[in-house]
Amino acid sequence: MSTNENPSKKPGQVETTGHVWDSNLQEYNNPLPRWWLWGFYATVVFALVYWVLYPAWPVGGSFTKGLNTITFMQDGEEVTTHWNTRSLFAREMQSGKQAVRQREMLEQVGAMDYETLLADVEAMSFVNAYAKGAFGTWCAACHQTGGGGVIGQYPNLRDDHWLWGGTAEQIEETLVLGRIGYMPGYRESLDGQQLEQVASYVLSLNGFAMNDVDVAAGGEIFNGYLGGCYQCHGVDAAGLASLGAPNLSNNIWGLVDVPGAANDEERVARVARFVHQGVQRHMPAFADRLSPAEIRVLSAYVHSLGGGQ
């Protein structure tokens, strides 16, 4: 207001707190309105009611539980306990509106065949939303968030390179049964030079310009009795999904970090070392951990990530 004195109150009519600032600035000591006091009493009443209804006071090692209860399902049985937020969360996840709706959608989408599911934009939208979470829970520990994998450890699910086949049905089979991938190490059967020759041959299949003599020798080993690599990887090194043997000619490297190598010498050394050691990898089976609907949704999700066939 434009005046610094309240004209409705004459000086002396109202007390001040006695403090004076800046020579004339004083603070009125007006009494609080009575309704404000009622407001305070109302909060006291609220607190008393709350203490009776909800967990409130610590008593020794325990606490007052309150009269309010909550009912939810635990291990198939109905449990009634004193009201608490954990049980509330459990109940929300069981019978909350959104949770029920999500389960309905999951059942609906889980009952579709892949041909319908993969072509349905609305179903795929749900797959993306739902499976992202499920993937984070069950798959991302190895395959990483988003399915990018780790070279040398866990397969990349975003590219079009499939060890065990990339149709939705094959992906489902992998999820249901799990997989064990195995390549023997050539510790005794190939010496250092032979390992390098095989390595040169494999690299040449991926567009790297290698020494022709080494490539020829490596090809002999790969496709001959000495290495026998063709038995799994095929004569054209295109891989064999039934064995989980990868295609070695598409310049996609899941196990040997060829893209990270600085020069040909290092590339050869890395591939040779890998052939020498061999590898065994294991993907666990999820049949007993996930419902068929969840497996279907996850399979469709993985199929959609990169190059599903």
């Binding site: 990483q144 988003g146 399915g147 990349n156 975003r158 590219d159 390179h161 310049n251 996609i252 990169g306």
Partner: peptide, 20 residues
């Protein structure tokens, strides 16, 4: 653009990005 992973190399030598 999907950022995890940002890009991925495909078998035919192309690079793939994903988008929502």
């Amino acid at each position: 653009q999907v950022r995890q992973p940002l890009f991925v190399q495909m078998g035919d030598g192309s690079t793939q990005n994903s988008y929502e």
